[in-house]
Design a protein around this nucleic acid. Structure first.
Lengths: 260, 260
DNA sequence: CAGTGGTCTAGACCACGAA
DNA sequence: TCGTGGTCTAGACCACTGC
């Protein structure tokens, strides 16, 4: 079968399958409900598991499904709107912005970051790297590394790894020092990426999971004083700029006229 | 090789493969160069083609590769920065913003859009749907549908499908009418999606290709006067907010000390 | 322990682009 | 026509979760 009728325009099976499942999700399943397992679904639709999985992958990418190894596949809630320009033109670390400082260490930044900071490439210039996590509505949605060149926080130049407090406390010091600077403005870029191993762990996802990478430049005195690279879970997040955080997106494409 | 030492924590083959290839791309390949075909690469690395493809898929998702059926796999240029807040607080259709009107028709908007516009769901309220394409540096990077309720452009209520000019011309009329309104502000949200068949065609991609969906609400007089849903190619685009458009991201993790 | 999703294989055929 | 990437199959084993 499959060649029973020569499709005039052979639509890929996984594509058709995705559409069928989408419709089913809209009409027959409730959020949180768990679907039959992959082997059974594949059998039910008469396809190989790999093909079924291709459809599920897309649906997960679109935020409609959530799959967890050892557990099963569940219907995902609508994406949460996450404000990215939190009280725009504010330094990170302001109270109650949903971010939690996790750690802080001195490292040589990746080349791309060094470039944004205007640091010479050859010099092994060290910067403070503040790791933070963002939690919204009970789930961690983002992991961030905030790169702060030592030159931006001169008061901390003497802070070596020995005399400084550990982890979160140290992060707080760096953030506190940033607040003293007059922030001129910010700059943002959003692109698709895949989670590095460390980010993935913090986001409770497998390495390689799709993420939205938000790169923010903080300007002080005409120069870039800090750079943030935040990775948001692409499956569960909708990044909002402006008000828009409160909007609730509804999926059901058509009101299926399900009377009574 | 590869099994020379039993990995204490068995790293997936495709993940390791991706890292190897990433390093190779940084050091041994030039932009635009074409890679060996999948069958040969798979053989060279001693894995099944499916596994090799899993690695290539991720690299394409990260914008490092470009694959075209019937042609081959090439090294992708760095992502282009695309300004999303074009002259913020301007109506779409302003001159030289990179958008090209393609078509315009009257349709019933998708439920999600109707909701954003504050239209009753049950009523089959029609709206103008302006289709546009965005071209940057010679390549089309985005496809947009701008939904304009008839109520927002009262002067056009009499415009039926018969007496109106066709396609692009009609789109221009709608956009022109929008310019007359006092735009109060905008609202944006960015999320990951997969290209619908029509968008995919316009973006020169296969259906289901990963896209960044930008939803914009235009406010007039305290209400939403129009909604735009734009899909940007996630593989080739970096969405920028603020200045940031000019920044060039460089990939090579390490300056390979290639003297002379 | 049993059941789930995640990884991997070795094939096959198809749709498309270019020569 | 040929070579490419895209789709699909029918298996297998592994890693994780929960009981």
């Amino acid at each position: 079968m499959g060649t029973t009728q020569q499709d005039t325009v052979p639509e890929p099976k996984y594509w058709h399958l995705k559409n069928v499942l989408t419709r089913a999700l809209d009409t027959e399943f409730a959020v949180g409900e768990i679907l039959p397992n992959e082997r059974e679904l594949a059998a039910r639709f008469g396809v190989a598991r790999a093909t079924l999985r291709q459809a599920l992958e897309q649906l997960e990418l679109e935020g409609r499904l959530q799959r967890r190894r050892g557990v099963g596949t569940t219907v995902a809630p609508p994406r949460v709107g996450v404000a990215v320009d939190h009280a725009a033109h504010d330094w990170p670390g302001a109270a109650g912005d949903g971010w939690q400082s996790v750690d802080c260490e001195s490292t040589v930044p990746p080349a791309a970051v060094a470039q944004l900071l205007g640091l010479a490439e050859d010099a092994g210039a060290e910067v403070f790297a503040v790791r933070r996590t963002r939690v919204t509505q009970g789930q961690s949605v983002a992991a961030e590394t905030l790169y702060v060149p030592a030159a931006s926080v001169p008061a901390l130049t003497a802070m070596s790894s020995v005399d400084a407090p550990s982890g979160p406390a140290r992060a707080h010091i760096v953030l506190g020092e940033l607040q003293r600077l007059a922030l001129e403005g910010e700059d943002r870029a959003v692109e698709l990426g895949s989670a590095r191993a460390d980010d993935a762990k913090e986001l409770d996802r497998l390495p390689g999971a799709p993420v939205l990478v938000v790169t923010t430049r903080y300007f002080v005195d005409g120069a870039t004083a800090a750079v943030s690279m935040a990775t948001y879970r692409a499956d569960t997040c909708r990044l909002t700029f402006g008000d828009a955080g409160d909007v609730q997106i509804s999926h059901p494409a058509e009101p299926v006229g399900q009377l009574s």
